[in-house]
């Protein structure tokens, strides 16, 4: 594999809240290759969205980000604000879960596309208008010329998500960060939007980091995946390898909840218990209270994320037992 497009090392995000500090993202490392779709999977609160936002330093004020995110030889975490602004929405764009809340309700879609073009291209007024129309065409919004002057509330849910994608693509990014882009949509529309993202990825030669809690989505769209739990990556590898032979008890539990073809996707609920709050992460392996494989060592020593087979990493004391269990099932 050639040098990765984005290389994240030891990314950590801390929040100060109520006089104490909590760690939402803890020592996360991963690479994104050219043209690759990386899935970032986990339950609500696992830190996957915060990881995504940390990359572009889009966290609320009071958050601290550490570690490295190397983008074309430069560290996004340490980059001066003015320089980072050129990367944001330029080479790296982001789309959000709720198109209703992520589009500004009081501005026409045209303004929201053109302001991005204005920030990143040398196009003049007429050029921006023409390009905005092209972008709506590109994401499959019919009657683009008229719809440009409409407001977000005049769009349906799926059309809103398409509009948001159009905005994110305005300056032809090389990397798209997608934060649960289909979760808020109806099932039929979900598939359309996923297809659209994959199609655009191929046409524009982008890479994608796709955050989702839906393993079905990962199976359909990603080449590699990283599973997050309580702010850390617990397993990472090729989608085929991880699905075939999970090496972390948590991933095994998640896979148990993947719906069979034809049934509706449901939330990940097959694992007993709920994920820990950030202020009360258990010592040792954070998953141990919910884990069927847990032993004393899991309650005391935090497992390192280390290779189990080439390119397949897991942070589990009992990854061999987990692998056997998955084969037996």
């Amino acid at each position: 594999m050639s040098a990765p497009l984005l290389s994240v090392r030891g990314l950590t995000a801390r929040f100060r809240a109520g006089g104490r500090e909590v760690t939402a993202v803890d020592d996360v490392s991963f690479d994104v290759g050219e043209g690759e779709v990386l899935g970032l999977v986990g339950e609500s609160g696992s830190g996957k969205s915060v990881t995504l936002r940390s990359l572009l330093r889009l966290l609320p004020s009071g958050a601290r980000v550490e570690g490295q995110a190397l983008w074309q030889g430069r560290d996004l975490v340490a980059m001066p604000d003015a320089r980072l602004r050129r990367v944001r929405g330029g080479a790296i764009s982001m789309i959000f879960q709720e198109p209703m809340t992520a589009l500004n309700p009081v501005l026409p879609v045209r303004v929201q596309i053109e302001e991005s073009l204005r920030a990143h291209t040398a196009l003049d007024r007429a050029g921006r208008r023409a390009r905005a129309r092209e972008l709506l065409d590109l994401v499959g919004i019919p009657d683009a010329a008229r719809r440009l002057d409409e407001y977000p509330h005049q769009f349906s849910g799926g059309m809103r998500q398409r509009a948001m994608i159009a905005i994110a693509l305005a300056s032809e990014p090389r990397l798209l960060l997608a934060d649960e882009p289909t979760t808020a949509l109806d099932v039929t529309i979900q598939d359309q939007i996923l297809k659209l993202i994959l199609d655009l990825k191929d046409r524009l030669g982008m890479s994608v980091v796709l955050v989702t809690h839906d393993l079905g989505v990962v199976a359909e769209t990603c080449s590699r995946m990283a599973v997050m739990y309580a702010g850390r990556i617990v397993e990472q590898g090729g989608v085929r390898e991880v699905f075939a032979s999970p090496r972390h008890a948590y991933t095994l539990g998640l896979l148990g909840s993947v719906p069979r073809a034809g049934t509706e996707r449901s939330a990940l609920r097959s694992i007993e218990g709920t994920p820990p709050g950030l202020a009360a992460i258990p010592p040792g392996c954070a998953f141990n209270p919910r884990c069927a494989f847990a032993t004393t060592v899991c309650r005391e020593v935090r497992p390192d994320l280390s290779p189990r087979t080439p390119g397949h990493l897991a942070a589990c004391h009992h990854s061999d037992r987990v692998a056997q269990a998955s084969l037996a099932a």
Binding site: A17, G18, V50, A279
Partner: peptide, 8 residues
């Protein structure tokens, strides 16, 4: 995240 922080 905010809810979790508030609860803690």
């Amino acid at each position: 995240l905010e809810a979790a922080v508030a609860a803690g």
